[in-house]
Design a protein around this nucleic acid. Sequence first.
DNA 1: ACACATTTTTGAATCGATTCATGAAGGGAT
DNA 2: ATCCCTTCATGAATCGATTCAAAAATGTGT
Lengths: 335, 335
Amino acid sequence: MTTTSMKDVARAAGVSVGTVSNVLNRPEAVAEETRSRVQAAIAELGYVRNDSARQLRAGRSRTVAVVVLDVANPFFTDVVRGAEPLIESAGGVVTVCDSGEDVRRERRHLEILEEQRVLGLLITPVDDTSASWIERLSGHDIPLVLVDRGAGRHPHCSVAVDDVHGGRLAAGHLADRGHARIAFVGGPASIPQVADRLQGCRDVCDERGIALEVFTTAGLNFAAGREAVEQMLGLDERPTAMFCANDLVALGALQALTMHGVKVPQECAIIGYDDIDFAAAAAVPLSSIRQPRSQLGRTAAQLLFDEIGEGEGHTHRNVVFQPELVARASTSREL
Amino acid sequence: MTTTSMKDVARAAGVSVGTVSNVLNRPEAVAEETRSRVQAAIAELGYVRNDSARQLRAGRSRTVAVVVLDVANPFFTDVVRGAEPLIESAGGVVTVCDSGEDVRRERRHLEILEEQRVLGLLITPVDDTSASWIERLSGHDIPLVLVDRGAGRHPHCSVAVDDVHGGRLAAGHLADRGHARIAFVGGPASIPQVADRLQGCRDVCDERGIALEVFTTAGLNFAAGREAVEQMLGLDERPTAMFCANDLVALGALQALTMHGVKVPQECAIIGYDDIDFAAAAAVPLSSIRQPRSQLGRTAAQLLFDEIGEGEGHTHRNVVFQPELVARASTSREL
DNA sequence: ACACATTTTTGAATCGATTCATGAAGGGAT
DNA sequence: ATCCCTTCATGAATCGATTCAAAAATGTGT
């Protein structure tokens, strides 16, 4: 009905559809006079290309999907922001899919993305169950890059951050401040990132003779931090510092400590992980471990396009970044 | 090449393409025996429907786009979460586009969405400049619902929250606590939401004889709150309470006050707006005005599908929700 | 005026799924 | 055996843009 197609434009401009297509895709191959006549017709009719038809012909869409665990988590929004410029400058369109850490949602998204014949995808898989689906996409020639999950044995490109090193940085910082008894708060242990951070922390404690108290939580959110503090305050020998597996946990802990009148950092220091904006803005600015979030996204996009460009002869690459320490008020006092 | 089409499946199952299509779309119209033979072939070949071809034929995609000002803002992520279930249960696919409060980015998204022939969209326009583009989409028969922007004179469905009332709630609460001199912090004034909240606040102050000090900021973020506090502390007659136009501003203010040793709420109370998760989790839990965010999203989706369903005879609806007060520690002390 | 090179334009074939008028097959009733 | 009614299956036409071999138009040199 109201939909104007190339045929209408062609008729209005008195040319063939092939010419209209050329005006749109290779304007330099069309004579000046004809080109402007066609463009006038396009403007006149308010013609808009039909992407479905283009895609059908092309066999692929120009969409790059980013499948994340939680769009509300500042970590992921920054990863996406990092990836966008490169994708868009390559003529791609970014679509963000939120799996919400739910395998079923993730699967639904992957099914749809496959039907849409996406150009490629950047994905942080929910867990190992996701692997078979990912292989399926990959088998159907959809290139993908794993984000923040070591590729491990899987044959894919990946970008990740060295979480063991991050754990070492945090614990090392607390040790430098003179703390001899510290707490690690985070969980569940099945999350690779949590396990790695704890590992690095443990290594440092062993090396430097520091007592480590581990509080395993059910999630990585405010409540987890609050609950851990309740437990910790009941101990006889209370740790003088806490290392929380992410900033949300740390902020929860900070709140609980403040409510109990425990001064931060004087009576208990805190360091978090991720360095989200809210960390710097907390009532007591929070020390944290910063991950190169947008670089993670940018590199992931880069690897994806490399793979698309190189085709068959492509060799997968696994890039690992190093996190860095950001010291703020919450760990500022020497003991 | 590796792409398997319906033709391949038809050949493998020894039926016509029409039958394969029926198995997929109206299985009840195909004989049991044939159906299972076709399904076996589909599984065998790993066939995946080509969405571009379906869309081309259908003339529309099944994507509903949500265009927001900032994906990193918890307000919008909640709105999206509210809209998703309804859209998905109607067989739709949700795509989130981030305009980043940038008209150019918004325009690029709208162009692409138009080419994609999206089913409809929910949009919070960047500003009045967006109007012409929105009318263009609308003119091309793409139904849309305005989110958190009163439809005003524009002929569209919309969902919004009564910000004037929200401003009244906040100021009224501070008045009830006995404050006789309060500060409003927020900006820029061109944002309708900010203007409305200030309006409500001003009304209450006038009615109840409260002195109002307005600090206009350049944005609605942490820095804005911090800067406002710096200014405020220099005043001779310092307000005893602050009403911040959103929670990010309030958290920035809270941080600055704490750094200057001003006790909250004893020496200065604070109330924010939006009631994001970080508000409840702040070192001093923040009082705030809660908007029914997910309901906003859900209703928007509902209005969109109503419009799609009713077609020509559709009458636009403008739904306005009332916000509610959430009192927490940051305003807990009577003066 | 003619042969030849170059620049433009043409239009039919193609991508893959859906739709629908048409036909085939099977079952009952007479 | 014939006719009618269901139930299933068929395959050509269609959606709209792109591509490319071939035709047409234009220009150049002699």
